[in-house]
Simulated scan of single mutants.
Amino acid sequence: MDIMMGQPFAVCERGGRLNNEDSVYPQPEVSSPKQRLFIVCDGVGGSEKGEIASALACESLQTYFSSFLQGNPTEEFINQAVKYTESRFDDFVSSNPSAKGMATTMALLYVGTNGMTLAHIGDSRIYQFRKGQILHETVDHSLVNSLVKLGRIKPEEVSSHPQKNVILKAISGTENPVQAEVTLITNVTPGDYFFMCSDGVMECFDDKALSGLFEKNVSSDLLKTEVLEACNNISRDNFSFFIIPVNNVQETVSIKHFILSFFYSFI
């Protein structure tokens, strides 16, 4: 499968906070259609700790992918990348004890030859849209989502719940190891959009509003502008997102399949 992307658009902004604890990879100004790996991290820990955690996670994950990936990333490979990142956190905290307790969410997308591999930890989210319809949405590792699953609260109560920002999983170091939730999306067609975001974006959009936005027949650049304007006007948090359009998808034919097809054509 050869997935050809359009120009990705990204934003990583301070929003209503004093400092920006979000980080993204690649940086918005260097993102291109040839990019395969995309990461959004939302740091926690207060002051500059969250900022360090998210930046260190983006850098460590990217380093692991660029150094060791052969072919398409498997669930095992991605969780090895997470373990490597946790060890990098340990090293940093060992040299900087005041950073103890820092942590970060992770949303990761890889454009492969077998489809789109999605992985997440915490409440940074990834969507797949087709003509505005949500085909896939990652499920937050959060307290309120667990309460919904248990029937303790209703889905419509999530946005106003006093503990809506409490997450149950985050990258923080080897003392508290976590596993990423990994999904391979093979149902990918031209015109699809993948949207990655930190929870600051979700202060401004629910699923219905996002569907309405991605249903519009407008350019990716205009979609970025609309999301950015809404976040600037509403969000009290840092906010980061990637808009990743799919331009074309071609099925690749293996050499073995080609030879067999050629042989049977003469029978």
Rank of each mutant, 00 (worst) to 15 (best):
Glu156Arg: 12
Cys204Ala: 13
Phe195Ser: 08
Asn248Glu: 15
Phe205Tyr: 13
Gly16Thr: 07
Ala180Trp: 09
Pro97Trp: 11
Glu215Trp: 00
Ser265Gln: 14
Ala180Asn: 11
Lys49Ala: 13
Glu157Pro: 03
Tyr25Leu: 07
Asn20Ser: 00
Glu75Asp: 12
Gln133Met: 13
Phe242Cys: 10
Gln179Ala: 14
His141Glu: 10
Leu61Ser: 09
Asn20Met: 05
Ala170Gly: 07
Asn248Ser: 15
Arg130Pro: 11
Ile185Met: 09
Thr105Ala: 07
Thr174Ala: 12
Phe194Lys: 08
Phe65Tyr: 15
Glu48Asn: 14
Gln80Val: 00
Ser47Met: 15
Glu48Gln: 13
Glu29Ile: 01
Lys208Phe: 13
Asp123Trp: 00
Cys58Gly: 04
Phe266Ala: 14
Phe38Gln: 02
Gly6Ile: 10
Ile78Trp: 12
Glu251Phe: 10
Asp123Pro: 02
Val139Lys: 14
Pro162His: 09
Gln128Leu: 12
Phe266Gly: 08
Cys58Gln: 07
Ser32Pro: 08
Thr252Gln: 15
Leu143Thr: 10
Phe214Asn: 09
Thr174Gly: 01
Leu108Gln: 03
Arg152Asn: 08
His136Phe: 15
Ser67Phe: 00
Leu135Arg: 01
Phe77Gly: 06
Leu61Met: 15
Tyr193Leu: 11
Gly132His: 00
Lys224Ile: 01
Gly112Gln: 00
Lys34Tyr: 14
Met202Cys: 04
Tyr25Asn: 11
Leu69Val: 03
Asn72Gly: 04
Phe65Ile: 00
Gly15Ile: 03
Glu76Lys: 14
Glu13His: 06
Lys131Asn: 12
Ile244Val: 14
Glu156Ala: 07
Pro26Ala: 04
Asn187Leu: 06
Arg152Gln: 12
Asp192Gly: 10
Leu147Ser: 04
Leu150Lys: 15
Thr113Phe: 01
Glu229Asn: 13
Thr74His: 08
Gly173Glu: 02
Phe242Thr: 10
Ser160Tyr: 07
Lys131Cys: 09
Tyr64Lys: 06
Asp206Arg: 02
Asp206Ile: 04
Glu51Leu: 10
Phe205Ile: 00
Asp22Cys: 01
Thr113Gln: 06
Glu215Ala: 13
Ile234Arg: 08
Ile78Cys: 10
